[in-house]
Design a protein around this nucleic acid. Structure first.
Lengths: 127, 127, 127, 127
DNA sequence: GTGGTCTAGACCACT
DNA sequence: GTGGTCTAGACCACG
């Protein structure tokens, strides 16, 4: 298997998020060439069409560029990527804050939970 | 209009989450009677059947109970609700931690962002 | 027409029972692919949504699994099915026993009737 | 509480069956006066309207008779009752046989299960 | 082409 | 009047 997807949300959207995050995090550098659709699909254990759709969407957003027959590349403009990263982080914070408020969770509880999720490399499957 | 739904995620799932959060947060008390399906549907600006499905699902999860023709009620067992709240919080923390790691964001950055989201009553529409 | 339903009992429940029995009886083997929702609906002479609901319910019970766009499959774990069969049989015996007692029928009478119903292939429509 | 009802089947139908069985079993004798609707409703822990509907239906079937303002009585013709009993038993046997065949249960298994349900007065709630 | 979702509206039973 | 069921039909997402 490749990746664990949330249920109830289209896979291609989760793929988009995954790759977008890879770009924002710098795991894919600006201008870097991406693996082929087929390889990415295998890596994610997903139907190539699904991966194709995710990539096409990211291209429409300007984060990816197709250079003719040479393959797909990460956008080469660092500003675009920096802006994308900013948007992602703001969205993350906004959504997280909103959900906390919805659940009525106190800041103290959040801190405690985040402490448990101490950003180390833990395996979240076995909890 | 009633509620703004995320795109790309079934409405009835978002409704479930909304109501589940209301219960976990205590905005609906254990044993409290819910508004009628039709009323809730109007409030959320959704087809009654969609709301019906969301409620039926929550009932299958044990958070709601239908007392015949008398209406739907929040589960009267506080333990069930407490447990549900725990699950929600754990999921929230897990997902949040995972996303942070994916984006490659440092705890410091998160802290800064959460400080901005300091749980005060801000309007997140205009950011 | 497809199937004769009892009146006074939701069709989707009767569909569930039918399919559950098919699984328990091994007419659908573990891991086997089911016909499409629309096909099953036509076969049973029922609205696709009604069939959909029945199948979704069985899925929630763990007897069926949906593999994305590939169709629905019988649970591949024989233990789950064996357990389901056990539950069905126990329920059947319990209900039957209870009804016999209610009617005040003697075991002898039951035996005689069951002898008539000796599990041969009779047509029960013309009785 | 009064009576445990099957889920997924209208209560008034189950009440009909219950009372019909009482008559067929002779617990209500031909011509005997029934308790008032209100009393029966209390006994069964059911809304009087529901009981009323059950009784009205049985009256339409000829098993009950209303004698003006004197109350409801069991049909005084023993033949009617005997015939009703016959129908009930045949239905029971037919349904049971059909279900067994559906589940693909062997006569041996049935015998074994019926042995466990040995028609003594057991409490089936605690199994 | 598959299952899934959503809407609209009708009817029914009454846990 | 409440929740539940069923139908009809359209659209979408997924692979």
């Amino acid at each position: 298997m490749g990746i664990s997807f949330e249920s109830g949300k289209p896979i291609f959207l989760q793929l988009k998020e995954l790759i977008r995050n890879d770009i924002a995090a710098g795991r894919y550098r600006p201008g870097e060439k991406l693996p082929g659709v087929r390889d990415l699909a295998i890596w994610a254990n997903v139907n190539p069409n699904t991966m194709q759709k995710a990539l096409a969407d990211l291209e429409a957003e300007g984060l990816l560029e197709t250079h003719g027959t040479n393959g797909r590349f990460v956008c080469s403009d660092p500003d675009v990527i920096a802006k994308a990263r900013k948007v992602i982080l703001e969205d993350l914070a906004r959504q997280f804050g909103e959900k906390c408020r919805q659940i009525g969770v106190s800041p103290a509880e959040v801190a405690q939970l985040l402490a448990r999720e101490d950003f180390s490399e833990r395996n979240f499957e076995n909890e």
